Simulated scan of single mutants.
Amino acid sequence: MASIEGKVALVTGGGQGIGRGIALRLARDGADLALVDVNSENVEKVAAEVREIGRRALPLVADVADRAAVFDAVDATSTGLGGLDIMVNNAGIAQVAPIDDITPDDLSKLWSINVDGVLWGIQAAAAKFRELGHGGKIINASSIAGHDGFAMLGAYSATKFAVRALTQAAAKEYAAEQITVNAYCPGVVGTDMWVTIDQRFADLTGAAVGSTYAKFVDGIALGRAETADDVASFVSYLASADANYMTGQSVMIDGGLVYR
Rank of each mutant, 00 (worst) to 15 (best):
148 D>T: 15
250 S>D: 00
183 A>D: 06
201 F>D: 04
144 I>R: 02
171 A>K: 06
139 I>S: 06
241 A>T: 12
241 A>P: 13
135 G>Y: 09
146 G>M: 10
218 D>C: 10
136 G>D: 09
175 A>L: 11
240 S>N: 14
141 A>P: 01
137 K>M: 00
220 I>L: 11
203 D>R: 14
162 A>Q: 07
206 G>A: 07
238 L>S: 02
227 T>G: 05
152 M>W: 14
244 N>A: 15
207 A>G: 10
245 Y>Q: 14
189 V>Y: 11
192 D>W: 09
246 M>S: 04
196 T>F: 06
139 I>V: 07
178 Q>A: 12
185 C>N: 11
137 K>L: 00
175 A>M: 12
198 D>A: 13
184 Y>C: 02
171 A>T: 12
154 G>K: 08
246 M>W: 13
204 L>E: 06
149 G>M: 09
213 Y>D: 12
253 I>V: 12
195 V>W: 01
145 A>P: 07
237 Y>S: 04
171 A>W: 12
217 V>Q: 09
240 S>D: 02
171 A>V: 12
183 A>Y: 00
220 I>K: 06
239 A>M: 14
148 D>W: 08
252 M>S: 13
192 D>Q: 13
147 H>Y: 00
136 G>W: 13
171 A>S: 12
255 G>Q: 04
170 A>F: 05
131 E>V: 10
161 F>L: 01
170 A>Q: 02
250 S>P: 01
170 A>G: 01
243 A>K: 05
134 H>L: 13
231 V>A: 04
229 D>Y: 03
229 D>P: 00
232 A>F: 04
201 F>V: 15
226 E>Y: 15
228 A>N: 06
215 K>R: 12
178 Q>I: 01
152 M>L: 15
242 D>T: 04
222 L>I: 15
131 E>G: 02
173 E>F: 06
254 D>F: 03
190 G>V: 00
217 V>E: 12
139 I>A: 04
182 N>D: 03
206 G>Q: 08
194 W>T: 12
232 A>M: 00
146 G>S: 13
155 A>R: 04
165 A>K: 03
149 G>S: 07
207 A>P: 08
255 G>L: 01
172 K>Y: 07
178 Q>S: 10
247 T>L: 14
174 Y>C: 07
181 V>W: 05
166 L>E: 11
232 A>P: 05
251 V>A: 14
133 G>D: 04
161 F>M: 06
185 C>D: 05
242 D>V: 08
150 F>I: 05
234 F>I: 05
247 T>E: 03
211 S>P: 12
175 A>F: 09
221 A>V: 15
225 A>I: 04
183 A>F: 06
221 A>F: 11
245 Y>L: 14
242 D>R: 08
147 H>D: 08
247 T>C: 01
167 T>M: 09
226 E>H: 14
142 S>I: 00
243 A>Y: 05
161 F>V: 13
191 T>D: 06
158 A>K: 05
167 T>Q: 13
137 K>V: 01
132 L>T: 01
192 D>H: 01
195 V>Y: 10
244 N>P: 04
207 A>C: 02
169 A>D: 09
251 V>K: 04
218 D>I: 12
220 I>H: 07
239 A>G: 10
223 G>E: 08
186 P>A: 14
250 S>F: 09
246 M>P: 05
163 V>F: 07
143 S>K: 02
174 Y>H: 03
197 I>A: 11
232 A>N: 07
